[in-house]
Simulated assay, not measured.
Amino acid sequence: MQYCGSHKLKKLKVQADISADPLWCDRCLTNLNVEDFTLSKGLKQDLQEWIYDYGKWIDWENDGIVPNGVLLEQPHNDRGAELTKKVKQALEGQYEVVFSPSTFAKIIVGD
């Protein structure tokens, strides 16, 4: 795959965001279609479920976090780290894979 202008995609980032697939080019931050990768149907489903859980700690109306938001964000990040390990195994030898955890709640509370 070609991204970042003419550079070949080498490094993927697993990151949750609203209305986006969980895979990104780590260089140019292009959101990538998970269907373009050789991941099992089960892993793709697990990643999609993880994405759906993104932001449960965010108070969207007030641009803040819900009560105990930091406590809600951490399990989401833990699950993302587990899924990243599975993505690494599935794509071993094809791409370098890194995880980018959510830091929204921690930034809001100043941790």
Score class of each variant (00 low, 15 high):
Ile51Thr: 15
Pro22Met: 04
Leu29Ala: 10
Lys8Ala: 15
Cys4Glu: 08
Asp78Leu: 10
Val70Trp: 02
Leu39Met: 02
Glu61Tyr: 12
Pro67Phe: 14
Val98Asn: 12
Trp60Leu: 13
Thr38Met: 14
Gln2Lys: 14
Ile58Trp: 05
Val87Asn: 06
Leu47Thr: 01
Gln15Cys: 06
Asp78Pro: 01
Glu73Leu: 08
Asn62Arg: 15
Gln74Glu: 15
Met1Arg: 05
Ser40Glu: 12
Ser19Ala: 12
Lys44Pro: 02
Ile65Asn: 05
Thr103Ile: 14
Leu43Trp: 03
His76Glu: 06
Asn31Met: 02
Leu71Ile: 10
Pro75Lys: 08
Ile51Trp: 10
Pro22Phe: 10
Tyr54Glu: 01
Ser19Phe: 12
Glu96Cys: 00
Gln2His: 10
Glu82Ser: 07
Leu39Gln: 04
Asp17His: 07
Gly55Ile: 05
Tyr52Lys: 07
Lys11Arg: 08
Val109Cys: 14
Ala16Met: 01
Glu49Ile: 08
Leu29Lys: 11
Pro75Thr: 06
Pro22Thr: 07
Lys56Asp: 09
Ile65His: 09
Leu32Cys: 10
Cys4Met: 05
Gly110Lys: 11
Gly110Pro: 11
Gln15Thr: 00
Gly69Thr: 03
Asp26Ile: 02
Leu39Cys: 03
Asn68Pro: 03
Asp111Lys: 07
Lys85Cys: 06
Val34Thr: 14
Thr30Gln: 13
Ala16Gly: 02
Tyr3Asp: 10
Glu96Thr: 08
Glu73Asp: 08
Cys4Asp: 11
Lys88Leu: 01
Gly64Phe: 07
Tyr95Lys: 01
Trp24Phe: 14
Trp60His: 12
Leu12Tyr: 05
Lys10Thr: 11
Val87Arg: 07
Arg79Gln: 05
Gln45Phe: 01
Trp57Tyr: 15
Leu72Gly: 07
Val98Ala: 14
Gly110Ala: 10
Asp53Ile: 00
Gln45His: 04
Trp24Asp: 07
Glu49Ser: 07
Asp26Gly: 11
Asp36Pro: 10
Asn31Pro: 05
Gln74Ala: 13
Leu72Phe: 11
Leu23Asp: 06
Glu92Pro: 00
Asn33Ala: 15
Glu49Gly: 03
Arg79Ile: 01
Gln94Cys: 03
Gly64Leu: 09
Leu91Lys: 05
Arg27His: 11
Trp60Ala: 15
Val70Gln: 01
Gln15Leu: 03
Val66Tyr: 06
Gln74Arg: 14
Lys88Phe: 02
Asp21Pro: 02
Asp26Ser: 11
Ala16Asp: 00
Ile58Thr: 00
Phe99Gly: 06
Leu72Asp: 07
Leu12Thr: 05
Leu12Cys: 10
Val34Trp: 07
Leu32Thr: 10
Asn62Gln: 13
Cys25Arg: 06
